[in-house]
Design a protein around this nucleic acid. Structure first.
Lengths: 193, 193, 193, 193
DNA sequence: TATGAATGAGGGTTCATTCAT
DNA sequence: TATGAATGAACCCTCATTCAT
């Protein structure tokens, strides 16, 4: 069991630490407030060392973005046997819960969406993610209509837009308490039934 | 009759010009990309002169924010005689139209909401605005339920959250065409009926 | 007579000051040792102010190069009536004198030639200057041969190469005293006669 | 028979590799552009490993300088029986040929001369070399005059200065083709005869 | 010998702001 | 009102060098 002296962590762990610190900084101060120096200091590293891991600030930002987006991809698989209504309810519940527990990530995600307007690459990434999300919801709604669980005149695509819109706006609804958010989710479930 | 100097514009006009240029810059580059020098140059002014009108960058940003928010305040008055359903439809239509026509302002507004997370004062301003907006929609929905135009089990507050959420998310739904947005608005109208 | 307070010099003078300081720094430390901060300090200016005059370090270096090269262009006009031998002698004398008096400029010029190997633009500038110089000497030699002042088998172009070579090598002949240099010039005059 | 490790090259070979890479870098980018990291990478070595061979950048530069200068020292011995004119002609020819074939080394040498102005130690080295060179040429010229092969009024020392100057300026005569250089050498031979 | 990781000391550049005119 | 000139405080990034392994 070799005793590390100068380093208590290995390279990959460092990367994770750095990205986490950067994410925190962005969540707290926004992209404008992100300072590589501060991130380095937060991790207890010299700036030069941080540049050893991430050659440029942009590389660091990209790493943060990728991490955030990467966690989004895991859309809960909707088995064919599951009830659309249940799937929808759980989906809303799932995101609402994550929103309450990991608000910081949502803040960064929000910043990313703002950035997407100027950064084509980021835009493409987020757009792809959105498309997958919309597709998932479309299927849920279409199946629900088919099975008579949802209104017959429900437009699956439009409904998906509403759901996504509600969920994306969570952070921008400044006076939205957890209760009001859940009430809105319930209202949503009633509205499609 | 005071003799106008060699300048074709007076102080107030200059302010408007500057704020407009700043707004454009923010819409294009975000707050991160806002440079007072660039704004000054855009207006054809020396930086020092710009500082004469807006002593600090923050003052300029505040002016932009106030202008944007100011235009939001003009919620269409819902006369007691008007039908809630119509009012809601027109409200959606109104915002969707503005969104298509004045996208830049929505971009800035989005940036403002992101900033609100760190800027308590801005947060208070936007929150007040949101409250008024929610109140307006609450009234519409409550009245609509009362008159039997909307579902009896409709939660007015929750419905307001959904409407506001949809409208606020417009910019973040990257693949949202004008048609899809209007389809969503229609779906919304059906969903509350 | 307005009393300047913060500035004792105007813009153009500042530029001259800065370029002079940069030239001095290059002569002393070479291009490697050139630090914009030091140049600024030398002139008693803040770095930011120096960047006000020269946006980038490269711009500053270019200005120095232009100044040095600019002073080279003034090739003494050889009137048709003047004796080639005299013209040549005076030319050698002129440069040798300048070399002794303004050694610093020759050092920088040397650095510029070294740089020319990597900087095509600089190379083009210096090459153009060299061509003019060679042309001047060619004419002198050709006329001298024609008038019987120089050897009949003298190759004017080759002789020009030798003269230019001698003068350009002044700085690289580390143990070259003023006397030896002048002796070489005399030898040159004898050699072509 | 010591067993070679997994490395195909031993220490001395490594040094040679490194010096060669450094020399190439200097010839290409000048001393300003020399980066130990790049040299290491060029040789396929870690920077830390390079520092094992050359503890400091200066040590590496010195090694390069020594190599370059070392190759210069081998002045062709002028046997007493050889004709001064021939010796001179061959000397010129020899250097001109090397210049065409190993231009890179001349570039570095040029950089070294530029550096010599600031580096006393390097200056001493080069000066010693120059003195030897001048001595060699002095002997040639003196003997040539003695034997009546060169002009009777030839100043051996001055002539040496001219020859060395011509040869040292090769790199600085930007539009000097191989032909023009040889023409100049021929002119030189005529001029001393 | 060799390397991954770390660091100190800058180096060029940017930017909001100020001041004398 | 308007401007040229100036500045302090950062900011990102680089580079030679070191150290534990």
């Amino acid at each position: 069991m070799p005793a590390r002296k100068r380093t208590a962590v290995n390279g990959e762990q460092r990367r994770v630490q750095i990205v986490a610190a950067a994410q925190h900084a962005i969540a707290t101060l926004g992209f404008e407030g992100l300072r590589v120096r501060d991130v380095a200091e937060q991790v207890g590293l010299n700036i030069a060392t941080l540049h050893y891991y991430f050659p440029t600030k942009e590389a660091l930002v990209t790493a943060v973005a990728q991490q955030i987006v990467g966690r989004l991809d895991r859309v809960p698989p909707s088995g064919p046997e599951r009830e659309p209504r249940t799937v929808l309810a759980e989906h809303l519940e799932h995101i609402l819960t994550r929103f309450a527990a990991e608000r910081a990530e949502f803040v960064v995600l929000n910043e990313l969406y703002a950035r997407a307007g100027r950064d084509p690459e980021l835009r493409a990434t987020l757009q792809a993610n959105d498309a997958a999300w919309a597709g998932f919801l479309y299927t849920v709604f279409a199946k629900g209509v088919e099975r008579g669980q949802f209104r017959a005149d429900l437009d699956p695509d439009a409904a998906a837009v509403l759901v996504i819109g509600f969920l994306k706006s969570l952070l921008m609804q400044l006076d939205l308490t957890d209760e009001r958010a859940r009430a809105a989710a319930d209202e949503l479930l009633r509205a499609v039934a």
